[in-house]
Design a protein around this nucleic acid. Sequence first.
DNA 1: ACAAAAGTGTTCTCGATACACCCATGC
DNA 2: GCATGGGTGTATCGAGAACACTTTTGT
Lengths: 222, 222
Amino acid sequence: MSFCYAYPRPAVTTDIAVFTIRNQRLSVLLIERGGDPFCGYWALPGGFVEPDEALETCALRELEEETGITGVWLEQLYTFGTPGRDPRQHVITVAYFALVPMESLVLKAGSDANDAQWFYIDDLPKLAFDHQDILDLARHRLRAKLDYSTLAFRFIRDNFTLGELQSVYEIIRGEALDKRNFRKFVKSLGLVEDAGYFKQGGPGKAARLYRLACPDQLYYTR
Amino acid sequence: MSFCYAYPRPAVTTDIAVFTIRNQRLSVLLIERGGDPFCGYWALPGGFVEPDEALETCALRELEEETGITGVWLEQLYTFGTPGRDPRQHVITVAYFALVPMESLVLKAGSDANDAQWFYIDDLPKLAFDHQDILDLARHRLRAKLDYSTLAFRFIRDNFTLGELQSVYEIIRGEALDKRNFRKFVKSLGLVEDAGYFKQGGPGKAARLYRLACPDQLYYTR
DNA sequence: ACAAAAGTGTTCTCGATACACCCATGC
DNA sequence: GCATGGGTGTATCGAGAACACTTTTGT
């Protein structure tokens, strides 16, 4: 069976960089490729766009098929189409990135992948295709948007402590922040409210828990 | 002649929103479509990606073919792939935007277009496809990047007056700015230097002319 | 002379930064 | 009792906003 067109067409894929925070380190989800090209290499989850499929739908579908992750928030990152990025043929990929709360996911290897695994962003294996470029850009965007959006909240769940939230900011920025200034900053955003409970059990004083005041519209400040 | 593949593929195009400032108004370049679909409608210049063609190369080529414009600076905007955006088939378009200096271009109608013309961004005809959405996003991006990049300089040429530069900012932001604050701001950027000449001839006092201190690396502040 | 645009400083406000100590809890 | 993280206020600095008059040129 084959599909024929009057003019040649490049193939189109989506690739997704899923970030989370594990063990206080920024991490990304990769799959081990089971087929050519780059068999045995690690790569971003992703795959070909199906007929009449929206790009974001494709990204969500591939993510579920290859890793079992569903229902995440996605943002389009950039479209990569340099000839030669796939050695077989001209493939244009629309890259997305996703943020998931820390330690909240059960992975399963899917049909297209031998294995799916989290890697620390600063300790990656050699990646297939131009996926390292995609990750470099994604990481850059993540850091930039931290300052003018509320994307950090995507890494945590309701009933978080301000200490946890602060550590998300610190991990993405790669530097320590002043605790009092940070708390002032968070309160000035006006997005969080006291959940009325405390987090018991860890070392140290019990921490007040917070939740999002408007869990829905949670984007772009400034 | 036809081109056949083992799996179906969407078509891929690039579209380009070229902005300039004419008569103190933000304007965009459109072409009148000569063929179906949307024959007779106005649309963004753009067209299909050729085999092994880089996306940006495609955008530049289509822009030249359809409007005669060459060598402009491009930035990738967003990739649109909603099924149904082209009534014939699934077409994914990678949208770019370009900024050209005011009153600097001679247009010519190209092979694929009956006509190419500048339109005021606030006074557009009904556009083909989802090109109005693309323009809405482009305009939004333009306004946002004005504040954290030096993109405004793309609208002017060397030997500009600070009044001219200020009017670029005012036109994109849609509001008047204070002259003294604006001059302080520009000097703090450290990107412009006195060209040593004055602009004679207009009404009012002759204005000092400036040029870019580093015409090359002209991007991203903050 | 007058219309039109160029050019020039100071004050205020607000957000960002720097900085140190006591408190509650688990072990 | 001690180690660990939670919680709190004040002073300083710098960028951005508000604000009005004089100068030069063309007509």
